[in-house]
Design a protein around this nucleic acid. Sequence first.
DNA 1: CAGCTGTATCTTTTT
DNA 2: GATACAGCTG
Length: 740
Amino acid sequence: MEDFLKDLNEQQKQAVLATEGPVLIIAGAGSGKTRTLTYRIAYLINKQIAKPSEILAVTFTNKAAREMKERLQTLLGNQVIPLWMGTFHSVCARILRIEAEKIGLSRNFTIYDVDDSVRALRKILSSKGLSPQKFNPKVVQNRISRLKNQFILPENLLEQEFEDEYDEVVAEVYKAYQAFLKQNHALDFDDLLIRPIQVFDEYPEIKTKYNNKFRYILVDEYQDTNHAQYLLLKRLLNPQKNLCVVGDEDQSIYGWRGADIQNILNFNRDFPQAKVFKLEENYRSHSNILKAANAVVKNNKSRLGKNLWTKKADGPKIRLVIAEDEVDEARKVVEIIHDEMYTYKRSFKDIAILYRTNAQSRALEDQLRRNAISYNIIGGVKFYDRKEIKDVLAYLKVLVNPADSVSLRRIINFPLRGIGETTVNKIERFAEIEHITLFDALGRVDEVANISATMGNRVKQFHEMMVKFMALKDELNAVELASTLVSEAGIMHHYQTEYDQYESESRIENIKELFTTMDQFAHERQKENRESDLAAFLEEVSLLTDIDTWNESSNAVTLMTLHSAKGLEFPVVCITGLEMGLMPLQRSSADLEELEEERRLFYVGMTRAMESLYLTYANRRRRYNSGTFNTPSVFLDEIPGELIEYRSKKRGSRSTGAVKKRRTAREKKLEAYFHNNDDNQDRGDEFFVGQKVYHETFGKGQILQLEGSGEKMKITVHFFRDDITKKLIKKFANLSPLEE
DNA sequence: CAGCTGTATCTTTTT
DNA sequence: GATACAGCTG
């Protein structure tokens, strides 16, 4: 054990040894952050400073937790280590499950994802007679989520003075939404964080229990914590305040989700006695990559500042690849892959292709398929978002929590059994009057007015089937229960007889895969001596992150968003779509803070690369219906010219120079083309992209896109007040330019 | 009530 | 270019 401290550099060792009191570890990209955290935990256990059960370690993804546990086991000699390790959300769910009875919560609560929340909100909005045009359920969901992240509860909100009608409606809907969740024994993602805070405030004995239990708390990726998570941490801390947070302000990329970069920037102010350690030696990347990344992120103002360095060689220059459009870009990515494979003997799994938006994966996938390059795609249409999987899960959710009316509505007429919307609404009204759940009302369908005998029988049949399976819940294990249910409810039959044979097969495959996953889950949980029932499985599934389902062992090129790439590394990284409007995104370009976050995102992408980094952009790109013409990302200009070289189409003929300093003939031609086009669009018009404008009804906004010309020109404007984007015809819009 | 068809809206990133 | 929803028909 003494020995293993030799694996650490001086700063890392200091960070491991400073076990007492608050500690901030500023860990640059690739500086051995995970290693330091793991060794710190191993040290605490090995020196018997803490028992494993007294340690809480919060990670950003479940995958990170899994990997850290494995490394810990290796370090400590293969014992099973019963410590709490997981994401904020899963740790909170675990606490809530344990304390459920004391705090008047059903132990079998359901976790609603964003989709479920939006469904619930749509219903609430319509019951209040609010038009979904004006009050978009998604926007309302977003607002409510923001409020929850700030730990602003409906009761605090209702006392306030409102600036506009929108806020007023959101406050009212928020309150109704919380009541709805309560009725359904459901919590949304944000509630998972908020409820424990409330519980700790309301029940001091529960707070004390966890204060005594968790004597040592560690938090990874601290730069991406939100205010609610911060408040939760404050409550978990006992007077010794043995809190160790690890983070890198340059990698804070979740501000849009409510993450507060100030948490890390102000750690010293929160804990004046905190010890601060900086890990600045990078073990991952060639020097050129690091220099380029440093030069980019240096342009940000919101940072503590650090100087990441490496002992590694310069390595190849960063290769810039210019494509004509997204198809050409994808072809060039294929060339890069071939090049790296033949010249440097890489395998598929050494290579990652990163992009800003999931939509960009399509063109890339097409070309990879054509060239028989196997690939793994992370995010996008997720396994657990597939219709057939959601259907099966909805059945299981109802079995576990019959009060969950969102899931119940999803399955009551799937597969079709002749129970339509009208009937369900009648029964629901009855349930409201009787103050019972929708599910229980199904059993009393005879008492509901205006329902025919045939219809009543259908409803009763469904209800009886579900009741039967609920009774079986304790006799069968999760997989047995699920597979029996899937065949008896007619789901299997429904998909087997689907017209599209290919579709049908893949759906059945997916359902089978779900069962396999359930099985694996049960085994893993049993090893740790934790519960493995259906409720536990559903909770696990609800809280999976994109990266958690990634099969790392397969030899395939990896495709994912820049966000998903955080924490990973690859010998070869290719960042695509480096154009204005896409990276940075149009709507994040105007606001300084948002622009800095985009820059950090680019920085995260660059620092994933160990040996080779390729950057690509396309002069033209199809974006849903229309094409756009693009200029290179401003971030490319921030890379010093001597670190970058053009990679032209012909292998071996490479020219050097900064982005705008030297151009090939084709480049010049493309640029000329671009400028001409620009001129055509702009000539005689007073509007341009990025311009601030004013509209009679919508107020102030900013132009995102211009299409066509003259009176018929279509202008896409994002209006700030209502956070809406509208496409307007110039002739009718009556927009006036704002001077700024 | 089921099933079909046309249209609107979306795409920024995700626990 | 997909998906969800409204509106229609049988």
